[in-house]
Design a protein around this nucleic acid. Structure first.
Length: 359
RNA sequence: CCAGUGGUGGCCGAACGGUUAGGCGAAGGUCUGUAAAACCUUUUUGAGCAGGUUCGACUCCUGCCCACUGGACCA
């Protein structure tokens, strides 16, 4: 595989790479590329994690990278998710969250043996140097910089800032170096941590990790009334109808998509088109998207270019309901392996318990 | 540790010694070949904790807990 081919696989369907130049020289160095992505155990696994992140890992594996998935149990605890209950967090990370990620990987035909899972607890126990790295990171971050970085926890500056909150960003940065990660991967919401990692890296660990950031997928409920910014479009686990989870049933998927925000002709702030673009077409110009509809509405159509979907939608040759139906059926099919995996008794029971934990 | 202020339903937020604040959010409905918006309906009493006063306390009193602000201590 050529460097260009690798570059394409690694960077496609991403919002940002810090930096392409660094990535290219990393590839050309011939050194193994050690990837990592970390997740808080904070809720059900939605498409942002299950399809975007795991799909990216599929690309990374094809490019010959070593992929590591970090189950950030301590981060979850520090961020007071799952009620800040350590036992619940530990249970959920192994019995629910990891299983949901394995389920998601199956949607890309990847076996769990092809990636490495590691929990925070295990990482810290096995690597006493982590504590030292953590302190070194602290030596290179100012309080104000750290405070600005807590947005990676979904927190706004000036609210609920306890000491644990302040530990979180440097802990995440230290994780990267403890795991010898040279390619850190996350949604764009985590960029502040990765930028800090790149800035302190040379002093703390003698290198700058490359950072690859993906788009956050839009929430189905659309923008808040009166706003049209990217933030209010984001999919959120706390808005029940804004997110689809990897183990949702076909009926749940159809129901949620049906309720989705779908303004005709609107191609800018439109979660449905956003999903078709980054999930179905995976950020590429060409692909395949089927829409089945009655003859009176134009009959079935197969799109092979994303631009054609946009064009038809813009001049109302593609009606929102038809776009919704096509998308729902695509998702149902794509997520089938995940649903099947969650039919296994232990997993379905874990899901029930997880939902209970979340109230 | 001391003082002041405050802790109200998923969230925000008033009033009041005794009769449902209100808003947001959420759910259902109407209207559109979807959704959104708009309109209609629903979300049937909640007060940091423990006591006390009272015919009756979210409202008064005592103690405790927590938060914010200021102060004290600083070997």
């Amino acid at each position: 595989m050529t460097t260009e081919e690798k570059m394409h696989l690694i960077t496609r369907n991403c919002q940002e790479v810090l930096t392409e130049v660094d990535l290219k020289s990393l590839i050309e160095s011939g050194k193994p590329i050690n990837h990592y992505i970390g997740f808080e155990i904070s809720g059900l696994v939605h498409l942002g994690t299950g399809l975007m992140s795991m799909g990216k890992i599929a690309d990374f594996l094809k490019a010959g990278m070593k992929c590591k998935i970090f189950l950030a149990d301590f981060h979850t605890y520090l961020n007071n998710k799952l009620g800040g209950n350590w036992e619940d967090i530990r249970w959920a990370s192994v019995h629910y969250f990891k299983q949901a990620l394995i389920a998601s990987l199956k949607c890309f035909d990847i076996d769990e043996s092809q990636v490495e899972f590691i929990s925070g607890k295990k990482l810290y126990e096995e690597n006493p140097i982590h504590w030292e790295t953590f302190m070194r990171v602290g030596k290179h971050i100012t309080l104000s910089r750290n405070l600005r970085s807590i947005s990676i926890m979904g927190k706004k500056q000036g609210t609920d800032v306890d000491m644990a909150t302040l530990f979180y960003p440097p802990l995440q940065v230290a994780d990267i170096f403890t795991m010898n990660v040279n390619l850190a991967h996350a949604g764009i919401d985590q960029r502040k941590a990765h930028v800090v990692a790149r800035e302190v890296g040379p002093a703390v660990a003698g290198y700058k990790p490359v950072a690859v950031h993906q788009n956050l997928i839009a929430g189905l409920t659309g923008p808040e009334p009166g706003t049209n910014d990217a933030e209010s479009l984001k999919m959120s686990k706390s808005k029940p109808n804004s997110a689809i989870f990897v183990h949702d049933t076909p009926d749940e998927i159809r129901e949620k998509i049906k309720k989705a925000y779908g303004p005709p002709k609107e191609i800018e702030f439109n979660p449905l088109l956003n999903w078709v673009k980054i999930l179905v077409f995976w950020g590429e110009e060409t692909g395949e998207f089927k829409v089945e509809r009655l003859e009176k509405f134009g009959g079935n159509v197969v799109y092979t270019k994303y631009a054609d979907v946009v064009a038809d939608y813009a001049n109302e040759k593609l009606f929102p309901t038809d776009l919704k139906n096509g998308l729902a059926e695509w998702l149902i099919k794509k997520l089938e392996p995940a649903r099947k995996y969650f039919e296994i008794k232990e997993n379905s029971q874990a899901l029930i318990r997880m939902k209970k934990l979340l109230g």
